[in-house]
């Protein structure tokens, strides 16, 4: 589905990723964990083409997207839930969702919208409320719902648990598990290593711009190194 081959990414002269290779197969949940500044968000942004990789290749469904424009990449069956939710706070919930389906027909939008409301009944209740007035958890639901509106085959989530209450985090992760059942491939970037690895089929550990470990989610959870560094011993 998504393959990163030996990707290097620079911010100006500083290299943030030193040759990262990651593979996400169709129908999987893959988690990427790492400490602050490890390069997790950089890796995601490289997939989205902003900034573009300075070396290596990014391949989406067999197509080389390394040098594609962001707007093209984001229209080719991939959707991202950006870090910090970034809902359109002045727009209502419904309008936010409609923005998510910007390039789809009205009929498709209607269908996806109903689907999103099934996944998140709470959003249906708040349909005409301004997104900025909702709680963090509701906004995160909206951000995920908005990403789903374009009917992506793959969804990338950047720290969906950031700043949320444990019970909400639980709900969000349940939904992510549900997405896999619908056949959507999930690439999850998290600091909340325990839950991210628990849910994931496979996991990668990123450390200062390099992939440090790579294994199944269960194995990583049991790995003493990972326990020591990310799960508090």
């Amino acid at each position: 589905m998504l393959v990163l081959e030996n990707v290097h990414t620079h911010y100006g002269k500083i290299e943030a990723l030193h040759g990262v290779s990651v593979e996400v197969n169709k129908g999987e949940i893959v988690s990427l964990i790492g400490a602050n500044g490890a390069g997790k968000t950089t890796l995601l942004m490289t997939v989205c083409g902003n900034p573009q990789a300075s070396a290596g290749r990014v391949i989406l469904e067999g197509r080389d997207i390394t040098n594609e424009a962001t707007s093209n990449i984001m229209r080719s069956g991939i959707a991202i839930v950006p870090e910090g939710r970034r809902v359109f706070s002045g727009l209502t919930v419904e309008e936010n969702l409609h923005m998510g389906g910007f390039f789809n027909t009205k009929a498709e939008i209607r269908k996806s919208q109903e689907h999103v409301y099934e996944l998140f009944p709470r959003l249906k209740e708040r349909e005409h409320q301004r997104a900025g007035t909702m709680s963090g958890g509701e906004q995160q639901m909206l951000a995920i719902g908005r990403a789903l509106m374009s009917k992506p085959r793959m969804i990338i989530l950047d720290e969906p648990s950031l700043g949320l209450a444990p019970i909400i985090i639980q709900q969000i992760f349940e939904i992510i598990g549900h997405l896999r059942e619908e056949g959507i491939t999930v690439f999850l970037v998290e600091q909340n290593a325990h839950q991210a690895l628990n849910l994931a089929d496979r996991g990668y550990v990123l450390e200062t711009g390099r992939i440090r470990l790579h294994d199944t989610g269960k194995n990583l959870l049991a790995n003493p190194e990972v326990r020591e560094a990310y799960l508090g011993g």
């Binding site: 229209r75 359109f88 727009l91 374009s150």
Partner: peptide, 16 residues
């Protein structure tokens, strides 16, 4: 309007 509200979010939705 989307661009005014949040440029990054707008771009993440494939808007150029």
């Amino acid at each position: 309007e989307a661009l005014r509200e949040d440029e990054i979010a707008a771009r993440s939705l494939g808007l150029s």
